[in-house]
């Protein structure tokens, strides 16, 4: 049998996992396309409805549905990356029977798929927004992209760290699983940090997600700013879990493979 180098093996494994995962998620009976859109769409409709019922013009110069959509699309991308990465090992244990398949490959694959799914959901949102004639113009496209991809990397870091630690301490992944969804309410998705009273502002800025959302919103809308974003803070939140996760992973890889 031909010897292949590790990069060739890695890329064929990622491709195989990618196609397998796409097939199970978006197979004919799974309605995967629908669910990919549903979460964000549902939230935008609910909060846009609530907002217009309460007060019409609390955010002058900003299309509130667009504000919500950018926030929820970003948040759900992060949430799905974390959740899918956390469960990647246990969903694929049988495939570790092939020595080419390393556990981290399953996380990388899921990470790529979630980015792809979010991108597709974003395109659908854009199409709808253009159709109903909402203003979707972006102040600083590059900064928005930086925010989105950094947020994705942050999700990867948390997901990897949780997956590795959770293999040995199941409680840990359960805790992460429970707190992820409520994070939605304290991450400056349906409001800006600016609009909060000073006391709450200080508290919410301990949440790295709030910084990411401020970065994305502030770079998207010309009426908003990114003054509250502490880049150093989110840098630590991204790279400490990433390096710890990778470090523990290299130590534990064999145990994860053999643990099935």
């Amino acid at each position: 049998m031909l010897k292949r180098n590790s990069l060739q093996i890695f890329s064929s494994v990622i491709l195989a996992l990618f196609l397998r995962e796409i097939q199970t998620r978006f197979g004919s009976k799974r309605l995967g396309y629908f669910w990919a859109l549903f979460d964000a769409m549902f939230m935008v409709l609910i909060f846009a409805g609530l907002k217009s019922a309460i007060s019409e013009h609390s955010m002058p110069g900003i299309e509130f549905p667009v504000f919500l959509a950018t926030g929820f699309l970003a948040f759900f991308m992060w949430k799905n990356i974390v959740k899918k990465s956390m469960g990647a090992f246990s969903a694929n244990t049988a495939l570790f029977n092939y020595k080419q398949v390393k556990p981290i490959d399953t996380i990388i694959t899921r990470f790529l798929i979630e980015i792809l799914v979010s991108a597709m959901a974003t395109l659908v949102f854009l199409a709808i927004a253009l159709y109903i004639d909402l203003d979707v113009s972006i102040k600083d496209f590059n900064m928005v992209m930086l925010g989105v991809f950094w947020l994705a990397l942050f999700g990867f870091a948390i997901g990897l760290f949780t997956a590795v630690v959770g293999t040995f301490y199941e409680t840990f992944s359960k805790i992460v699983d429970v707190i992820i969804t409520p994070m939605m309410f304290v991450s400056a998705i349906m409001y800006t940090v600016d609009s909060l009273p000073p006391v709450l502002r200080e508290i919410i800025l301990y949440n790295p997600l709030a910084h990411f959302l401020e970065l994305i919103h502030g770079s998207y809308f010309s009426k908003l700013h990114t003054n509250y974003v502490d880049y150093e803070y989110i840098f630590y939140w991204t790279f400490i879990p990433l390096f710890l996760g990778l470090y523990f992973y290299t130590k534990a890889e064999k145990k994860i493979i053999a643990s099935k």
Binding site: Q23, A94, L95
Partner: peptide, 28 residues
């Protein structure tokens, strides 16, 4: 080869055909 045996080695949610495809793909 991968260890062939009675215990597992295949992903239960995938069909036989999908598993064959998967294994062929990881071997490039």
């Amino acid at each position: 080869s991968w260890p062939m045996g009675l215990a597992g080695g295949f992903q239960g949610s995938m069909t036989g055909r999908q598993n064959v495809k998967f294994v062929c793909r990881i071997y490039g």
